[in-house]
Simulated assay, not measured.
Amino acid sequence: MSLPFTFLDEATTSTLVTMANVVAVCEAVLVELGLGVARLSEPAAMFLNGEMNIPTLFKVKGGYLPGSGACGFRVVGDVGDDGQDGEHHYCYLVDPVTAKPVALVAQTRLHRMRTAACGLIALKNLVSNERPTVALIGAGRIAAEVVAGFEHVFPGGTLIIASRDPVKAKTMASSFRPKSAEIRAANSAREAVQQADAVLTLTSSPSPVIDPEDFREGMTICGMGEHGELPPALFQTADRFVVDDIGFAKVMGSVASWIRHGEISEEEIDSRSTTKLGEIVARIAPARIDAKQRILAIVQGLAIADLAIAKICVDMAGEAQTAQSMPFGRKR
């Protein structure tokens, strides 16, 4: 007898959840991580090169969230550098008890929403006031989700967008009309940073986009890019260092870039007093200790949250009867 197996395509998943839903799910996932309940795959991520001439890169991460019952793997395929020629994101969900396959969920847009939500949650917990001025460095697809969700997390706040292409930043800023937040563009990253209480970097830049001199007392800088967008001097001058997943930070992003280029050793990273974002969200560790603290956070989105979002999509699609079912395997 065949087992039921659900498939949700992009057209379906993109209509099932809002940014408010995604923020709530990501906060719940971070709490599970902070409490030590969630389980992550070992190693944290696996990579496979496909056709090198294009190039094509595949990434796999796994996890289990007992609280929601979400269990499985997130599989990503990027075509071209940083997926500029195409990207495909899927979650393969399994039953954590029987190990039977449950669903395959397309979530290319959902992963952007999740990444944006995790960055906003980090800032929400680390900024020094409830209505901050935030500089967003980057104007790509994930940055657009940050802009879309900013008002939900920071009503009354101000978001200043900067990009290597000022026109792109202005276009993005003008495309949103929030009711209780201000969104505007800056002519440069430095102009945006110098006006901000907090900074969120979401770039593909292999070199620093922030001047260390602009890391002022009371500021929070949250790096989310996959390369070396933050200078190592930020790590050296920060009063506090926060990460979502230190293991993955050593594989991809600014921390990995520092280690790879010999700017900061892995031993220095390991010996540094580090606070996990999940522990802060779970209220196990304090957030900002005082208003003058300079906080550096490396938050790359926690792919395990994609599994929880995918499971919610499967549940919602089942209730709405919009899921596609197909036979998969056989019962024993």
Rank of each mutant, 00 (worst) to 15 (best):
V37A: 10
V37Q: 09
A38I: 07
R39H: 07
L40W: 00
L40T: 04
S41I: 00
A44D: 05
A45K: 15
A45S: 10
L48Q: 14
G50S: 05
E51R: 15
T56G: 05
T56E: 14
K59E: 11
K59V: 07
V60Q: 13
V60S: 13
V60L: 12
G62D: 03
G63R: 12
Y64Q: 03
P66D: 04
G67W: 01
A70R: 03
G77T: 14
D78V: 07
D78K: 15
V79K: 15
G80T: 04
G80R: 09
D82K: 15
D82M: 15
D82A: 15
Q84L: 12
D85E: 12
G86K: 07
H88N: 08
H89F: 14
Y90C: 12
C91W: 05
Y92P: 01
P96C: 04
V97G: 11
V97R: 15
T98I: 02
T98M: 05
A99E: 05
A103K: 09
A106P: 05
A106M: 10
Q107T: 07
R109W: 02
L110R: 08
L110W: 01
H111A: 15
R112L: 14
R112Y: 06
R112C: 13
R112A: 13
T115V: 11
A117T: 01
C118R: 03
G119A: 06
G119D: 02
I121E: 00
I121W: 00
K124G: 00
N125R: 08
L126Q: 03
S128M: 10
N129H: 12
R131W: 01
T133W: 12
A135M: 13
L136I: 09
G138T: 10
A139G: 12
G140P: 09
I142Q: 15
A143M: 07
A143Y: 11
A144Y: 06
V147C: 12
A148F: 01
G149T: 01
G149P: 00
E151H: 03
F154N: 02
G156K: 03
G157Y: 03
T158R: 15
T158F: 08
L159I: 11
I160T: 09
I160Y: 07
I161S: 14
S163T: 00
R164Q: 08
